[in-house]
Design a protein around this nucleic acid. Sequence first.
DNA 1: CCAAGACATCGACAGTTGTCAATGTCTTAG
DNA 2: CTAAGACATTGACAACTGTCGATGTCTTGG
Lengths: 109, 109
Amino acid sequence: MVGKRSTTTCCAPLRETVLNHAGASELAMGFAALADPARLRLLSLIATAPAGEACACDLVTPIGKSQPTVSHHLKILTDAGLIHREKRGVWAWYRPNTERIEELRTALG
Amino acid sequence: MVGKRSTTTCCAPLRETVLNHAGASELAMGFAALADPARLRLLSLIATAPAGEACACDLVTPIGKSQPTVSHHLKILTDAGLIHREKRGVWAWYRPNTERIEELRTALG
DNA sequence: CCAAGACATCGACAGTTGTCAATGTCTTAG
DNA sequence: CTAAGACATTGACAACTGTCGATGTCTTGG
């Protein structure tokens, strides 16, 4: 259950109305991106970064996996809309996409 | 990333402190259970049920998958701590585990 | 232009997941 | 006790996922 997210705003809290198929897919893609410890730690590292953004170069060591693996996880988080990537010179900078995170949080509310 | 959850309370919001390995695994198990459209719709059906609980017998048709598949998804949600199962007579009744759902919601906060 | 370095992509592989048909285990009506 | 029915479990299979080493693509310093 990975894939690129659509841009529609989504969804009412699960307990309020029965989730339709489209909304369920949309949310499932987001939660799938959170369904891995390494990705959760990446998101946490990025969200707690002092300047509000983190350099990919500082993420490989704390995660303790290979550089391609970390790059892969960052791509999944990006495709799911949970983080935003910006390439500046040689480095890639990541910051959390608060709206999308809040969207998932709202669904659980 | 499925499995039975532990009973420890978990975790501070991702943005407040960097998630440790144990907390990451704990959360990942929860989010993995949410990473499927059918399971999200099941949880939604259960959470919106009038009496606060839903009979498994009323869940197969709306999901549109086979009975064993629905049973399988309900087990995953149960093992992840997101819903609670109670067998009464011939029927199985499910209700949401609000604390566990709130736990996941808090992590995204 | 060249070399070094940061990051992404590719290819491969083992492990996991979603699905269903078939079957098993209970519980209750008669 | 027996039959029917609700639900769980099993077995099988294709599809997907996480991981890494090797390699590719940029960007910058010299």
